Simulated scan of single mutants.
Amino acid sequence: MLRMWTASAALILTGAVLLTGCGNDKSEGKTSGSGEAKLKIETSFYPMYEFTKQVAGDLADVESLIPAGVEPHDWEPSPKDIAKIQDADVFVYNGAGLEGWVDQVLSAADGSSLTVVEASKGQDMMEGTEEEDHEAEEAGHDDHDHGGLDPHVWLSPVRAVQEVRAIEAALGKADPDNKETYKANADAYAAKLGQLDQEFKSAFAQVKRKDFITQHAAFGYLAKDYGLEQVPIAGLSPEQEPSAEQMAGIVNFAREHKVKTIYFETLVTSKVADTIAKEVGAETAVLNPLEGLTDEEKAQNLDYIGVMKQNLEALKKGLNQ
């Protein structure tokens, strides 16, 4: 779960402000092929980086704050990271409570010329389950959960398009001279996402079953948009431990519905999924929430669309057993 900011965060922010004061001016930096200064863009984690890079093309220097292989739910920025945000032209984050540190950081940057993009803003958001909210309260995490909202909109291709469009609009505002280029780039990427959306629709139209068990409740939007039912073992945070009652309920569901695959994810341990799979005689498979590419995935030149196609194949196999 996301950790609550304390007095130590204020010290981090103070240090970041001092670092920013000593940093480079925003007008400095690399230039595009046309000789114009490139935008400096900081993004929170991988999907925001990928979507922004696709829209920006070679007109911006785009960085991801959260490094490869790091699970983003509990990551917190260092003073250097905060200074990067404050020194950027544009900052892109998902929102809906995923990046629990954002409000504190942006309040410190208030009054700057930073263009801020909450990519999920304006979407029809889903709420977490009552069980997840109850567990968060019992664990004392009511101040650092997702605010009751499911932030994982990027895992539905059709909703990913909406995030891309939000980024396009912001880059056009920050750099109006290149607005048409950003639009053309966004159009091209949206077309690829549209094709991915059609592949998902076609694949799930004729599957034998509609329900799938996941270790982490990250695939609610994907399930909703393609007529499926996600049955999560735990809640919105991958670190949330299921209760004994939840475990028993999942085991009973798996047996009753003859589930043959239990999905776990990259970046976190698969022990809970392994335990349930062993109990019911099922196999396990990866369903990647794309919260950060591993070094191995990067070495394979995988990207958002490539990983989502892997997810599609993994789901299609499980739903046809």
Rank of each mutant, 00 (worst) to 15 (best):
R3T: 12
A7Q: 06
S8A: 14
A10I: 11
L11H: 07
L11G: 07
T14F: 11
T14W: 09
G15E: 15
L18Q: 10
C22R: 14
G23L: 00
G23T: 01
K26N: 13
E28D: 12
G29W: 00
G29D: 02
G33R: 15
E36D: 13
L39D: 02
E42G: 09
T43Y: 04
S44D: 08
S44V: 02
P47K: 03
M48K: 12
Y49N: 09
V55R: 00
A56E: 12
A60D: 04
D61K: 04
D61V: 04
P67G: 11
A68N: 15
G69D: 11
P72S: 02
P72D: 03
W75K: 11
D81K: 14
K84Q: 12
I85N: 06
I85V: 14
A88H: 07
N94R: 02
E99V: 09
V102E: 03
V102L: 05
L106D: 08
S107K: 15
A109E: 11
A109S: 13
A109M: 06
L114R: 11
L114D: 04
V117T: 12
E118H: 09
E118L: 00
K121M: 02
E130D: 12
E130P: 03
E135A: 11
E137Y: 10
A139N: 06
A139M: 13
A139Q: 11
H141V: 06
H141C: 06
D143S: 13
D143C: 12
H146C: 13
H146N: 07
G148C: 02
D150Y: 08
P151T: 03
W154D: 02
L155R: 08
L155S: 00
V161D: 00
E163S: 14
E163N: 15
E168C: 09
K173A: 03
A174Q: 11
N178V: 00
K179C: 01
K183I: 01
A184H: 03
A188N: 05
A191M: 03
K192L: 13
L193T: 06
Q195H: 00
Q195C: 00
L196T: 00
Q198I: 05
K201V: 12
A205W: 03
Q206H: 05
V207W: 00
K208W: 00
R209H: 08
D211L: 00
D211R: 14
F212R: 13
I213E: 12
T214Q: 05
A217H: 05
L222N: 01
G227T: 01
Q230P: 04
P232Q: 10
A234K: 02
L236G: 08
S237W: 06
E239Y: 07
E239L: 15
E239C: 05
E241V: 11
Q246N: 10
M247W: 10
I250S: 10
V251I: 15
R255Y: 08
R255I: 05
R255L: 14
T261N: 06
I262E: 02
E265G: 13
S270L: 09
V272Q: 14
V272M: 09
A273P: 01
A273Y: 02
D274W: 07
K278H: 12
E279M: 05
A282R: 01
A285C: 01
A285I: 02
L287T: 09
N288D: 15
G292H: 08
G292I: 14
K298F: 11
A299P: 10
A299V: 10
Q300Y: 10
D303G: 09
D303M: 10
Y304E: 04
G306C: 02
M308K: 06
E313I: 10
N320F: 09
Q321K: 06
